[in-house]
Nucleic acid binder design. Structure first.
Lengths: 229, 229
DNA sequence: ATATTGCAAATTGGATCCAAAAAATAGATG
DNA sequence: CATCTATTTTTTGGATCCAATTTGCAATAT
């Protein structure tokens, strides 16, 4: 995991830096699910004591990204397929509504930014950055909704499932399909057709969820077969 | 605030006990918004050092119940009227959907429990317990939805706004109206009419939100007048 | 009287240390 | 050789201590 304090803010406390680094590492899939996060090891990584590490782990646990058992330490939480499905179902309920609320008040600047992010997918070879680009594209469309609470719940939901999407996007045609759907959503937003944009967003999220669940079902079944055989 | 470790669980760590006690105290309105939560004072209350207190405050900050500035300590976050409106709007989007999902699979036991909670409002003189009864009533209706993530977001939303509702329920007829609406929702659920139950739940939440926002607008305007005059 | 500067008290973030619990390892026993 | 038990090692939750920062107050200047 990368340690870059400057990216986070000039006067960020150690625990904030560690929290952001760990959150990034988990959502990016750099630390695998079930992997133990030892306080002492992380503390040495950052040249600090275990105190700020514990604060970071507490935050991560509150966000549901790690789970902790008394005296047994923190492990990256692994979501069942049902739990992943639920997060996509949740997003499919929330995000179309936020987009609907944003459209009447959307600035040209935000719309242009969304267009730039949508276009940048095509020229981005690093699959590790697709998740971030996707998030920024949708965020640009949502931000003028003036609904900070909704946006925070969307971000929390994305943090939970992002790490599962990466492999699927690389190994299937998921990325190409997502790009096409982004263009369709964008066209509906440009036309200020809130109903259409919301419906397309809902389908976009549900389709992504179905693809991911399908992909994970296959790969997890494969893992079990390997382990058994 | 009450310190009752036994209520929370046999082997709960100190920080968990403190977290629950502070969360309860904040959501119940026992500590006022803007009030500073001094680590040392809380530590002495519970006869522990500041370390577990800091962990509890970290959790509360992650949940949005307190906000912290470096070296300036934690204060109970105060929500603007717009933010309170947003939470009710969010609940009005989520909760009807959860109820809709729960109805086809709802057990008789859960339905009976919801009925008991609905009835218990009438005989509960302590207004401090109304919020909890309300939460349990709705939770009984939602729990068979098998959507733990939705339920956790609903609980987080309720934690944010519960403390604002108490005074309003006592000083207006909000409680009586809520009771009537609960009975109507219950009837729709008994009839397994998911559309009707969802619509009633949405209206129930939106009406509660409107009442609360109206009440707070008046009382905050009054406060300003007092401060100015 | 009011604004300003300097110092002391209060408060927090973090380091170091300690005790309790769990995991790992070695030894005894069938 | 496998299994159970005792002991050592790891690891965590919490206590105590320290340094950095803010806040409150008093003395001073205007």
């Amino acid at each position: 995991m990368k340690v870059k304090a400057t990216d986070i803010g000039q006067m960020a406390s150690a625990s904030e830096v560690i929290f952001e680094a760990l959150r990034e590492a988990i959502t990016q899939g750099e630390v695998k699910e079930g992997e133990a996060l030892r306080q002492d090891r992380i503390a040495r990584m950052f040249n600090v004591s275990r105190i700020p590490v514990r604060e970071a782990l507490t935050r991560l646990e509150e966000q549901g990204l790690v789970s902790t058992q008394r005296y047994r330490g923190a492990v990256v939480s692994s979501l069942s397929i049902a739990e992943i499905e639920e997060v996509f179902e949740f997003r499919a309920l929330i995000e179309p509504e936020v987009l609907r609320l944003a459209i009447p008040r959307m600035s040209e600047a935000a719309l242009a930014r969304a267009g730039d992010f949508a276009a940048s997918f095509a020229s981005e070879p690093d699959s590790a950055r697709w998740g971030e680009l996707n998030r920024r594209f949708h965020y640009a469309l949502y931000e003028d909704s003036a609904r900070p609470y909704y946006l925070s719940t969307i971000n929390a939901a994305l943090d939970r499932v992002d790490r599962y999407s990466r492999a699927q996007l690389v190994l299937t045609d998921g990325m190409a399909r997502a790009q096409r759907e982004h263009e369709q959503i964008l066209a509906a937003v440009v036309a200020r057709d809130a109903d259409q944009a919301a419906a397309l967003t809902r389908e976009h999220i549900l389709a992504a969820g179905r693809s991911l669940v399908d992909f994970l079902s296959r790969s997890r079944a494969g893992e079990k077969a390997v382990l058994a055989g």
